[in-house]
Write a protein that binds this DNA or RNA. Structure first.
Lengths: 188, 188
DNA sequence: CAAAACTAGTTCGGTACCGAACGAATATGG
DNA sequence: CCATATTCGTTCGGTACCGAACTAGTTTTG
């Protein structure tokens, strides 16, 4: 169980087996074809773009699964949501950042960020300071406690990332990142 | 801007350019290297798994971007959230399904599903019926209005999926789906 | 330099979403 | 059979998250 995307569709994967690098495709594809047949039957096996359907729906499915596991296993002990972790991470790398840019980097609406920064500020992990040059702007940075938190969490998160991409070769990981980058670009 | 993942990191992509199929890598990589250098500098350029970091963080970023655009552009006219759309889609393909399985197929906690089914039921798009054989169980199916809704929405959604994977070859889409499937499997 | 346009951040209303606790229906096993 | 365990779905409390409206600084311009 649990290999469906958007419920069930594994259609399309048979098209290009030759291009695939993993050797266990054939074992998986056997029962996946059942689902594929259902979809084709329902959708009338023409006129739709199954390759894109496959790619995109798997994308969302993978992201949801990873997020849930990351929150449950890696982040929960620190009471961090995925979004909160991301905020700390970005600030860790960049030292400080304005709210607007931070929201964009973290893939959050700025209204959402406000709330999450409130939470993180209350917990003493980040600090907000208005900029003297422009009092509208707000500079956000980690407190030393925030820094020590992310310093402790990130290695665990990174090894979790390793687990999640277990079984992919270095080249495949890079290829995945590349393909996703191109998709992201289309989405922006 | 906006090609960062988890804020900024495009590190790792230089490792395997040779394996990549797109020819515009080099134009992108130029400025991406700046970010990569920042990350490396901060993280100390050893001990961490940058390939996995890259793959996984791009994954989340792409999914979030796609979801937001799908909801904003394709689904909003029908007042459907991404999750609601998924529910309709699954029921469309499978005709009917029990709550528990539906939750799993849609990647939702069952408590979440209850609420969303309430909404969809109120709107007359789905229908719930207890199973006679086992009164705990609930069978969910589309109403005819639900069916006509998803019949109208799906083609638009599918062509949106096509846009999102624009620029990928058929083989690349299949490869993307395959890699994601393997990641999802790790996450389950 | 005052009014208008713009910009950064917050507030607000609402949905989505989770996990844990719950209640009802069914299966189990002594 | 009845007590217990299990298995459904729902309820509940809480956070995350969005988009739109709002507030308060800043820039523009007549």
């Amino acid at each position: 169980m649990g290999c469906w995307q958007r419920g069930l569709t594994e259609s399309g994967m048979s098209i290009v087996w030759g291009a695939m690098s993993s050797e266990k495709q054939s074992t998986e594809s056997a029962w996946l074809l059942a689902a594929e047949r259902d979809v084709q039957e329902r959708l009338g096996d023409s006129e739709f773009d199954f390759a894109s359907l496959d790619a995109i729906s798997n994308l969302y499915r993978a992201a949801a699964a990873i997020r849930r596991r990351a929150e449950g296993e890696v982040l929960a002990p620190y009471s961090l949501s995925f979004g909160a972790f991301t905020i700390l991470w970005v600030l860790w790398i960049w030292d400080d950042m304005e709210t607007a840019q931070l929201a964009q980097e973290c893939n959050l609406a700025k209204g959402t960020l406000t709330g999450m920064l409130n939470t993180l500020e209350k917990r003493g992990l980040v600090e907000r300071n208005r900029m003297e040059a422009d009092m509208r702007r707000m500079m956000v940075c980690l407190t030393s406690e925030g820094r020590s938190t992310i310093t402790e969490v990130f290695p665990k998160f990174n090894s979790f990332e390793g687990e999640m991409s277990n079984g992919l070769t270095l080249a495949e990981k890079a290829q995945l990142a590349d393909l996703l980058r191109r998709v992201t670009k289309n989405a922006q």
